[in-house]
Every structure is written in structure tokens, then in C-alpha cells.
């Protein structure tokens, strides 16, 4: 599997008797959107944390660009080019929109330990930051304080911050959460253009978005991936229907 960007290899993680990750393997290939779905409590968040850093698997490995990153910190993984967005917006709420993306540019450029020159006058940082804002369509909001943004704009900003890293892969945890139908549609369109730049591992509850976007879908239930395949494969998979989609219909 030399051609995959991200490899999760037989990852195990238990909390006491609960097997949150029970031998999970999945890959993310160049140019694809790989959606990870599963009912609540299936272990999606646990898996995301093991991929992004912050949680060590008991067994197994996470490889990124052919490199074993299992022992690396969140910051190191980000520096390698793993761009992440959060389910609940993780932004510096007191910062302006521009400051948030400049923060991303600072992390990307490794200029954290520059003590004297003003960050908000640094051409290279500003160019990178503004470029990211333009791509998500937030250019006219530069000076807005982040806490005053609408929910949808925060999601856009979240993606913009990830973009400043010029990531080799995106890890997106429910980017559609809380977006209206229109916002969801806009973001869907944007993610479709984004995947040619870097593949996306997408955790998402919005089934319309998942079926519209994903090249491949993996279904996680009780810490195990019960099926991986194309949209049609998953739609027609009997096991998935009972384990997940059936539940959703009944609800």
C-alpha cells in the first residue's frame, strides 16, 4: 500500500472492558474522500484521536506518508501535514478571523520562537493566511472577532486554518454539524474541490453529504469496521443496514 497517504494498521484501544478500537485498519488514498460513519458510541472519536494524536493506541500503528507516526505528538503530526478540523469549533474566539489563520501560518512556518517582529505585519504569514481565507470565502471578515461569527462561518474558518498548513491529508470531524441545508451544500461543493489537493478522511453524520461526497465509506460499529466500499456497496450491504442505517430509519 505504498500509494496510500494514511494507513491505520490494526489499531486496538480499550478503556477498561470497553473495546473502543478493536482491530481497526483503514487507508486514505490520494485524491479520495473516505467517509467514516457509524452510530453514536461506535468509537469514531477514539479513532480520530489516535490518528490526530492525543491518544495512544494499545496496539497497532498509524502511518502517514509511509512514516510511522504512532509515537508522535499532535503538534508533530500537524507539522508533517495532517490538517484537522473539529466537531466543535476549536478556534481562538477572542482573536480576529485573520489572527486565527495567521496562528495557523505561524505553526506551519515554524516561526513560533520569533520574539521581536510583529506577526500581523509579516508579509509571508499574512499572504498564507489571506490565501486560506480567500479560498473558503471569508476574505471580507478579516477583522471580525471570531466569537461574533455565525456557526457556519466558524466552520469555514476552521477549514481555512487547516488550509494554512498546506496539509497532505485532512481529518475532518463532522464539518457539516449544525450547518443549514444551504451551508451544508456549499461546504460539500468546496470539499469536492479540495480532495484533489489532499485526501480527506471525513467523519460525518449527515448521510446526504456522505453519499454525495464519499468515494469510499467505512462503517464503524462497536470498535470494528464492518464494511468498507463504494457508496453503492454500503447502501446495499445487509449488515450495515441492520447495524446502522436500520437504526436510523427506526429513529
Amino acid at each position: 500500500m505504498a500509494d496510500s497517504i494514511l494507513d491505520v494498521v490494526d489499531v486496538h484501544k480499550s478503556f477498561g472492558a470497553l473495546k473502543a478500537s478493536d482491530g481497526i485498519s483503514l487507508t486514505l488514498k490520494p485524491g479520495e474522500i473516505h467517509a467514516l460513519i457509524g452510530p453514536n458510541g461506535a468509537g469514531k472519536s477514539t479513532l480520530i484521536k489516535q490518528i490526530a494524536g492525543g491518544l495512544q493506541p494499545d496496539e497497532g500503528a498509524v502511518k502517514f506518508l509511509g512514516q510511522d507516526i504512532t509515537g508522535k505528538t499532535t503538534a508533530q503530526r500537524a507539522q508533517l501535514g495532517l490538517g484537522r478540523t473539529f466537531q466543535i469549533s476549536a478556534l481562538a474566539m477572542g482573536f480576529t478571523v485573520l489572527e486565527n489563520v495567521v496562528l495557523g501560518a505561524i505553526g506551519q512556518s515554524g516561526s513560533v520562537f520569533r520574539f521581536f517582529s510583529p506577526a500581523m505585519k509579516d508579509r509571508a504569514l499574512l499572504d498564507r493566511a489571506r490565501n486560506a481565507l480567500e479560498r473558503v470565502g471569508l476574505s471580507d471578515r478579516e477583522t471580525t472577532i471570531t466569537s461574533e461569527l455565525s456557526h457556519g462561518q466558524r466552520r469555514q474558518l476552521e477549514v481555512a486554518v487547516a488550509l494554512t498548513l498546506a496539509p497532505k491529508a485532512f481529518l475532518m470531524d463532522e464539518p457539516m454539524a449544525g450547518l443549514g441545508a444551504e451551508g451544508s451544500r456549499e461546504l460539500t461543493g468546496f470539499l469536492r474541490t479540495l480532495k484533489s489537493e489532499a485526501p480527506i478522511l471525513l467523519v460525518e453524520h449527515d448521510m446526504d453529504a456522505v453519499f454525495a461526497l464519499a468515494d469510499r465509506i467505512s462503517v464503524l460499529v462497536y470498535g470494528k469496521i464492518i464494511a468498507t466500499g463504494s457508496v453503492d456497496d454500503i447502501r446495499n450491504n445487509a449488515e450495515v443496514k441492520t447495524a446502522y442505517l436500520g437504526e436510523e430509519d427506526a429513529a
Binding site: 494524536g53 500537524a78 473539529f86 481562538a92 513560533v112 486554518v161
Partner: peptide
């Protein structure tokens, strides 16, 4: 303001 954010942009 947000430790997680700083970490995920690669800041130690």
C-alpha cells in the same frame, strides 16, 4: 484561548 487549536497547527 484554545490549546487544542495551537497543537493542531503544529505548535509545541
Amino acid at each position: 484561548q484554545n490549546e487544542e487549536r495551537a497543537l493542531t497547527v503544529g505548535i509545541n
